[in-house]
Amino acid sequence: MESPSLATVLPNSSVEDELEPGGTTNTSFLTKSTSIPPLRPILQKTALLGFCLFYVFFISIIIFPSLSSNIESVSKSSGNPWSTKYFAPLTSFLLYNFADWCGRQITAWIQAPGPKSKLLPTLVLLRTIFLPLFILSNYQPRAHIRTVVFDQDIYPVVFTVLLGLSNGYLGTLVMVYGPKIVPKELAEAAGVVMTFYVVLGLAVGSGCSVLIVHLV
């Protein structure tokens, strides 16, 4: 008589298909289908890269779009279309996304620094400097920090390009490295873990961006 449990798992197979020569049930097919990749070794091996990925998107989402889109042209009072209508959409949204796309494409030809290089987390942490750079541009309205240091339109344009390029390049670079530093059988699971770091960085950064905007 056919076993009900095996019939449930493989309704079109007989018991003989899953019996070993000695008459014992072969459960290897069940083990393979229900095996879960070990999370701890993946987290241990990808900890530094995960932090880098988290911090890249954490800084980017704080600045873009909450800070960058509120930077106004210093010549807005002139009334010309560039400074009143097109400055923010072009210099913030279009320019940032184009620079981000370019940064991602660069990783197809250049992949440096390496996944174990100390320069990689250093470059990621250096992106923190973008926060004061954007805050001290002509961000409006300002409630607490009255000083505008970068009082030319070219400054936020350059800052936005560098922010987008570094986000696209470093973010993609770390995502590529993640599955490569673990054994092949864990590569797919490592990719999922790296995606979690992206989501975490965006979530935490979004919350912090609200605080930063109220402090400016």
Rank of each mutant, 00 (worst) to 15 (best):
L53G: 12
A108G: 12
P113Y: 09
E72L: 08
E16F: 12
P132W: 06
P37E: 13
Y197I: 09
W82T: 10
A47H: 08
G168Y: 06
R104T: 14
V161E: 10
L202H: 03
V158W: 04
L6S: 04
L165C: 08
P4D: 02
G164S: 10
K118N: 15
S13F: 09
S75G: 06
S206P: 01
S60C: 15
L186N: 09
S14A: 12
V192F: 09
N167T: 15
T147E: 00
K45D: 07
S5I: 00
K184A: 13
T172W: 08
I63W: 14
S166Y: 05
Y96P: 07
N26Q: 01
T107A: 02
S66F: 09
S68W: 05
L136T: 09
W82Y: 14
T34P: 00
D100A: 08
I110Q: 01
F196L: 13
Q44K: 11
F98C: 14
H214Y: 14
P121Q: 04
N12R: 13
S28L: 15
T91M: 04
A143N: 08
T122I: 14
Y96S: 13
K32T: 13
N97K: 02
S14E: 12
T34K: 11
P183A: 13
Y169E: 03
E20C: 00
L95Q: 09
N80V: 14
M194Q: 14
F196C: 03
K116V: 04
L10S: 10
Y197Q: 10
S73E: 04
L95Y: 03
S13Y: 11
K118S: 15
E20F: 02
P37N: 06
L186R: 00
P113M: 07
L170W: 14
G114K: 02
K180T: 12
T195F: 10
A88E: 11
A99W: 08
S78W: 07
L126V: 13
V15W: 08
S28D: 15
L95V: 00
L49P: 00
L95S: 06
F58Q: 10
L126P: 09
T8Q: 04
L200C: 11
V74N: 13
L215C: 06
P121S: 07
E18C: 03
S75Y: 13
G201W: 03
S75H: 05
S92W: 07
T91Y: 12
T172R: 06
E2M: 07
V148F: 11
P4M: 00
S166Q: 11
L131T: 01
T27Q: 06
V210S: 05
L49T: 08
W101G: 00
K116P: 02
V193N: 08
T147C: 01
S77D: 12
L95G: 02
A189H: 06
N138P: 00
R146Q: 13
A47W: 08
F150V: 11
L125C: 14
T160C: 12
I110N: 01
Y86V: 02
G207W: 03
L49W: 11
L119W: 08
Y55Q: 00
Y177G: 10
L30P: 08
L126W: 12
